[in-house]
Design a protein around this nucleic acid. Structure first.
Lengths: 312, 312
DNA sequence: GGCTATTACGGAAATCGTAACCATG
DNA sequence: CATGGTTACGATTTCCGTAATAGCC
């Protein structure tokens, strides 16, 4: 089993086409065909069904492993890069709702204490944050998601990175102003099974609540594929559905009201991810983020459950 | 970066010698040298110091990644094997103290409900359990360790396997009969910082309590490198030190008394690990283990903290 | 001086591309 | 019949082993 073959298999599975994979990898279709055939012969079982090209169960499993292996390889390369070069710049990627004002506070501190450090920030969808880290395109990634209190974020390949919790924020449900539940002091998720939910993977991340996922299976769901919070709120205001948001994203928007989430007790958590090997400047930023986060007011009461709403 | 090169780097680092690595891998010294040189050139930095052969920081890091990658590759191979063959046998590895009587009960049930299934059990040190699983030498592994209540076991590369908790058992401290603390109803770890502790990595696993590790650094520690419980207890009885054990391992032994552990509240937990792809027979065993575990008496009160011992 | 890693070089094996072939939608 | 995967084959490259060289205890 060669790395090249595994990479080819992965790309073929992703494209569903030998030709497209060959184009992406800079090979000819023939070479791709030979590599796949070699793998299948070595493993003694077919990995792909042809025409249309789809992975067999074995191929699917192997492609999954290949993806993880190649990701780790990228991480290894990036770490070795950190060890040899000494970068003068710190690059941060952050998903749109991650960190709230913690990032700004940390950057202010870094610039004050060490003005020579150049910092660049880029916001990306939650899904591509780890990719940026692994590829060496970023020195730190702020990722966020919805989890139980004090529960670590479910990030794929967590073992590849160092992570540290920054802030946990309460969750609110955003309703159209006319919604009957909009006047309550809090709402529970099981009241909202019918939705219709608006999910925004590029904003909230791809780890929605199970009950939301359930609504998804029922079809009671709208998907917003942008990263603009104002647009999402406008959709809510227009009556297309309700949305689950961190409390700190609760802007004053015409036609939208927000109600704290009662049960189950979930929080919007953001963590910093870095390579296990970090440059001094990167470490500086992480430390600044941590202290900025610890200065955030009202941390501890977030772990205590909010009052549950009485059943309707 | 080729898999072959990474494997040789790893073996060289483990042996501290090009020659020994070449012998293990079936290459000549020359080939090993060329592979390492190729890697170093490709990455633009030295990975090994020669004479004596030791990894640089970069080499150490890369070897670590290589180990994980090769382990995952083994897992992939084993999984694909499961998918194609249909084994008639279930092979279990278990560390000596894992599972208590749960394994026996599960095996009895499997034999009763499905007598045609051949089952073999082998006991191994906790460290090599995941290796056996990855290499395809076992279909399920019972691993154990000391953690907080309801806390998952810290097993390296946990993401590679499916895991499921079976039992949590209280911990006791085994004292020589004459020990002054032996008459107490319970003891706290901080009373025992001076030890001397007897640690048994092949029995208790390599995840000792922090305070025990602290005693280790002070030198107040004896290590027992066997897997025989009676021998360990004999060492305790002979006055060489004290040991931390799951309560269910508390045999009646002359000259040894055991006292429940008070604070911190830790438990001896055992989990089953399997490949993500399991044979029907393997799944049968895992299910039997789970039901056998749920029939274990007195599960739930284990999560409630035991009474703390008053400070001496 | 002996043990061990490196370098030089030649032969063997692997891999890719071109091109002809074949199958499926 | 056309798009796209397979097979055949030759050229290039890669990689390993032998053997000579160099460096450290």
């Amino acid at each position: 089993m060669d790395l090249r073959d595994l990479r080819t298999l992965l790309v073929v599975v992703r494209h569903g086409s030998f030709t497209a994979a060959a184009a992406e990898l800079g090979y000819t279709q023939s070479a791709v065909s030979q590599q796949v055939a070699g793998l299948e012969q070595e493993l003694g079982q077919p990995l792909l069904l042809r025409r249309p090209v789809r992975p067999t169960p074995a191929g699917e499993r192997l492609a999954e492993h290949a993806a993880r292996i190649l990701l780790r390889l990228d991480v290894a390369r990036s770490e070795l890069g950190q060890l040899s070069e000494l970068p003068s710049e710190v690059r941060v990627v952050a998903s749109p709702l991650a960190g709230g004002n913690v990032l700004a506070a940390a950057l202010r501190e870094v610039r004050a204490s060490n003005p020579s450090v150049r910092v660049t920030v880029r916001t990306v969808g939650p899904a591509s944050a780890v990719g940026a880290l692994a590829a060496g395109d970023a020195d730190a990634a702020l990722v966020d998601g919805v989890v139980g209190p004090n529960e670590p974020l479910h990030v794929a390949d967590a073992g590849l990175f160092s992570s540290s919790a920054l802030v946990e924020d309460r969750l609110v449900v955003a309703f159209p102003a006319a919604h009957p539940l909009g006047r309550r002091p809090s709402v529970d998720l099981d009241m909202l099974a019918d939705g219709p939910w608006i999910v925004a993977p590029e904003l909230t991340g791809a780890s929605p609540e199970p009950s939301v996922a359930l609504a998804h299976r029922r079809g009671a769901l709208v998907q917003y594929d942008g990263s603009d919070l104002a647009t999402l709120l406008a959709l809510v205001g227009a009556g297309l559905g309700i949305a689950l948001l961190p409390a700190m994203a609760r802007f004053r928007v015409e036609g939208v009201i927000t109600v704290p989430l009662g049960r189950p007790h979930r929080v919007h958590r953001t963590e910093v991810l870095t390579l296990r090997v970090t440059s001094p400047h990167g470490q500086l930023l992480v430390d600044a983020l941590r202290t900025a986060a610890s200065l955030q007011p009202a941390r501890q009461q977030l772990s205590s459950p909010p009052p549950s709403a009485a059943p309707a």
